[in-house]
Design a protein around this nucleic acid. Structure first.
Lengths: 213, 213
DNA sequence: CCTACCGATCGGTAGG
DNA sequence: CCTACCGATCGGTAGG
């Protein structure tokens, strides 16, 4: 009896995960608004209402997809990069991880959060609020790693950590945009170059930084 | 007779312009895909099919809106900035013009091309192609002004004009995105600061540049 | 998880 | 420029 219940629950969880994985990809191309329950159901070969039952409303589905994408990015991009030794190398490792994520294009429409945060830029509501939080999180992670690099003496204390975090974030954001629009890996190189030069300008040992890459 | 015909033509042109102006604004919020003929007609208090007759298809409407927005930006942002004397001051004038455009927010959803080029990033077709062309135009304009500033001796010849143009473009793109999402003018300041420092780093007379602002 | 259905809205057409 | 209409699809519900 109990094992049947557990099996059903596990099956439900698995279906839910499959839905979210598929929805993430579709949303990067058609947007969270363009994401339709019927279209999603067809792609997964299940009925519209069967899929709908997992979430209860389109907004709940959208919010669930957002959390799914956040977990994906934390697991695949951020956490692996944070395993690098602290200081400048950890900071640079995170920059490279984001550039790789952009170039590898795990979703057809590129970075999930670049696409959806732009889509909901000017549409107030819980979805916009959550996306804004997540994007702020990313910039704060950069600011934290920069401050740490200052504490261990890799970056000059005179540098403004928040300003620097903003600039790195915008160069990553731009790389994703340009790479999606032109499909040309040159823009990855351009953003990498710009980030490297910017970091070198505030480094305590610029020459070590060049060779450390 | 002839005057009636002319009057009708002029009236038609005026209606068309009103449609495009309204559509531009709606598209920055809901996207070119979310832009619906019915919704647009309701906003303009005319019938759906009456509006439809001006364009013949949704895609034709979308392409017309894109050209309307391009003309708007050339008229309101680019051309006025190009009246500044050539060299570094003209280049900086264009940067400031774009930042002002971002902060003044002529459309509810911010920069028309930032919004729509991201929306069509991964959707091949004539709309994506045209948006990509227009965005490349903007970057090329920057590259041209940088090269000119090198020719008149304001910027070192060693600077890579295309790389610099890319970086300025991404900082402007980022400012629009962040300003729309957080509604905080601090990001305009951050982008301005980053652009200024970047230009100073390649200037032949950095001190003159600071005071020239 | 399913079938069958709801009202609303979509892009587009016929005919004037 | 209009009214009246088309088939398709939207988010969501009833009932199982």
């Amino acid at each position: 009896m109990s094992s049947t219940v557990h099996h059903r629950k596990a099956q439900g969880e698995q279906t839910r995960k499959a839905i979210l994985q598929c929805a993430m990809d579709l949303a990067t191309v058609d947007g969270l608004t363009g994401l339709s329950i019927g279209g999603l159901a067809k792609e997964l070969k299940m009925s519209k209402s069967g899929l709908f039952a997992h979430f209860g409303s389109k907004e709940a589905l959208q919010l669930a997809v957002i959390e799914g994408a956040r977990n994906f990015v934390l697991r695949e991009v951020v956490r692996p990069a944070l395993r690098t030794p602290k200081g400048l190398s950890r900071l640079w490792s995170l920059c490279e991880a984001w550039l790789c994520y952009t170039e590898q294009q795990p979703f057809r429409g590129g970075c999930f959060f670049a696409a959806t945060s732009t889509e909901f830029n000017s549409r107030p509501g819980p979805i916009r609020d959550r996306l804004a939080e997540i994007m702020a999180e990313r910039q704060q992670t950069f600011a934290r790693l920069i401050t740490k690099a200052q504490q261990v003496g890799n970056i000059h204390d005179s540098a403004d950590a928040n300003q620097l975090a903003y600039e790195l974030d915008m160069l990553l954001f731009g790389a994703n945009w340009a790479f999606q629009l032109y499909g040309d890996a040159d823009v990855i190189v351009r953003s990498r170059l710009a980030m490297r030069h910017r970091l070198q300008s505030v480094c305590t040992h610029p020459k070590e930084f060049i060779t450390a890459i």
